[in-house]
């Protein structure tokens, strides 16, 4: 395992998609390479922050009523 390969498989690592023998190699590499450890920590946290920093948004009840009214009007004109 080298630094370039370690970075390239980060997505599979975060998804738990790596076979156990590769996983061991990644862990061994991260234990011995400070730069990759920093890269891994900040890469993983970027993914976490992307999710955490988005405000959850859902359709408010009045918006849902507008949507239904709009769609059923369209549905009736299509008939």
């Amino acid at each position: 395992m080298n630094c370039k390969k370690c970075a390239a498989i980060m997505e599979d690592y975060l998804e738990n998609n790596l076979p156990s023998e590769i996983l061991i190699e990644v862990h061994q590499h991260l234990d011995s390479c400070d730069q990759c450890k920093i890269f891994f920590n900040t890469y993983r946290l970027t993914v976490t922050l992307s999710r955490k920093m988005q405000e959850p948004c859902c359709v408010a009840p009045d918006m849902m009523e507008r949507l239904k009214a709009f769609l059923f009007e369209r549905l009736n004109t299509e008939k």
Partner: peptide, 25 residues
């Protein structure tokens, strides 16, 4: 991987600040 600063250990009030949220957006 030339990054030398591990900002992942910063406290949450910095990581999740409004300013960093703006940067990310």
């Amino acid at each position: 991987q030339t990054l030398s600063y591990d900002w992942s250990s910063l406290p949450d009030d910095i990581l999740l600040s409004e300013e960093s949220s703006t940067i990310l957006h």
